[in-house]
């Protein structure tokens, strides 16, 4: 294969104001400018977005599924971070 394969980009689309950008998918492009344009053509051709980010896939660092336990399980035993942990007398409002 050619050594000129275009790199892969991850595409994030903001569907409307007030929402954050959400991962939409990926595509190939030679550079960021073309990646943005390709993303516009591919992921917003049915008016799905008002703003786009593109990120080289190689620039993303991801947590490893193998570390899932140490990364995410410790959060599970801290119920006091959630409002439902606290008992409030009935009738008290706006709390």
């Amino acid at each position: 294969m050619s050594t000129h394969d275009w790199p892969l980009w991850e595409v994030f689309v903001r569907s409307r104001r007030g929402l954050s950008h959400t991962h939409a998918g990926s595509l190939h492009a030679p550079d960021a400018e073309m990646a943005l344009r390709n993303a516009r053509d591919l992921y917003t051709r049915r008016s799905e977005g008002i703003s786009i980010w593109v990120v080289p896939s190689s620039a993303i660092s991801a947590s490893s599924p193998d570390e899932k336990d140490s990364f995410f399980d410790p959060a599970a035993d801290k119920p006091y971070r959630h409002p439902t942990f606290y008992e409030i007398p009935e009738g008290v409002k706006h709390l």
């Binding site: 190939h28 053509d41 591919l42």
Partner: peptide, 11 residues
């Protein structure tokens, strides 16, 4: 020449 361009030209 490339799939991404199929989409662009059709647009």
């Amino acid at each position: 020449p490339v799939l991404e361009e199929e989409v662009a030209l059709a647009n």
